[in-house]
Computed example of a mutant assay.
Amino acid sequence: MIDQDTLSVEATLASLRAVGEATRLRLVALLGQSELTVKDATAILGQSQPRISRHLKLLAEAGLILRFPEGSWVYYRLADGPAADFARDLVKRISATDPVLTADRERFQAIRKAKAEEAAAYFAAKAATWDTERSLHAADSDVEKALLRVLGERPFQSFLDLGTGTGRLLELLSDRYVSALGIDASHDMLSVARANLARIGLSNAQVRHGDIYALNVPPRSFDVVAIHQVLHFLDDPARALAEAARALRPGGRLLIIDFAPHELEFLRETHAHRRLGFGHDQMKRWLEALDLEMEQVTDLAPQSDENTNLTVTLWLARDPRIVTDLPVAEPTREVA
């Protein structure tokens, strides 16, 4: 029997055939640094869209890469598993000064820079609105410290961030998890998140377009799921919590960060809030209905004592199903 971490002779030959062409080898080298679209690859390699698409299709059929549709775009990245690891190893054995791959990397960095500038412009356009809201509650740094304190220092295998926004939680928890996925409904915010992850060289975290009410993730597949300042934008928070609970592994934890009940009606009008906060009892009922056990509740007072300011609450719940306490590999932070 072939070990699941190794390849059979047939699979090895299939992988060699898949990468045994100059364009496909260059694509594997690029995808080892970051996910790409066909448009990105076309600009970097200077080849036609049909040609690039064909090569990507062959690599996908060989199990070396994965494709993720996102609206009218499709993102590609290296797959997990021995076949993709084999391809990575082949690339590592190519000279770092190879002129073709060096030129590809330079064009790739130019595209990254342009995307980062676009993301920064989008973020700047939204900053004034967000700054108004931030001034009403505890400083983001205090919320993040509380979040880290609530989760504890023990590392875990997999992390899912729902409504990832700029990808801040993926960055903040990068020393705790082995792999992570951020999901958001906004293509613009995903562009910001991708630029941020690229900037810090965080390659074990990915972001995807998705619907928080219908998550395209396997059930029982994440150790920690976070919903940070998202529920108050939703018409049906309970339904989103049900999807989050479905993604939890036995023994997994769900962390919710949102506002306590308040009466700031202007947030509905100017900030698109659907709900004016959530009470402890309400959240407990929702979580108990999902067979989750509340473990901890933390309230963070606003920055001032004014009645017009907001309290941030952190709720931590756990899936009580029995889980075998296996050791978790230490998180690694790969630099692209």
Rank of each mutant, 00 (worst) to 15 (best):
V178G: 06
R268P: 00
A195L: 10
V225H: 08
D223G: 07
L248W: 01
D184K: 14
A238C: 05
D223N: 05
P218E: 14
H228E: 13
G210P: 06
I256M: 06
G210W: 08
D184H: 12
E171D: 10
Q206G: 09
L254Y: 01
A198Q: 12
Q206E: 15
F278A: 03
T270A: 09
P250T: 07
I257Q: 10
L276F: 05
G277F: 05
D281F: 10
F259I: 01
D211A: 05
F259H: 12
A245N: 01
L215P: 01
L248A: 04
R176D: 02
A195S: 14
N204G: 07
L276E: 06
V224I: 10
H232E: 09
L241G: 04
H209N: 15
H232C: 00
F259W: 14
L241I: 02
R199Y: 07
S174T: 10
Q229W: 08
A226D: 11
H280P: 04
L197T: 06
P218C: 11
I212E: 04
V230H: 00
Q229V: 06
P250S: 09
L190Q: 08
R208D: 10
R176Y: 05
A185W: 05
D236E: 15
R285G: 07
A195F: 11
L215R: 06
G201F: 03
I212W: 07
E171G: 10
V207S: 10
R239E: 11
F222H: 04
L173W: 02
S191D: 13
S179Y: 13
Y177P: 03
S191T: 14
Y177Q: 03
G201E: 11
R285D: 12
S186E: 10
I227Y: 03
V225A: 02
L202G: 03
R220Q: 14
L267K: 00
A185N: 14
R253M: 04
H228S: 15
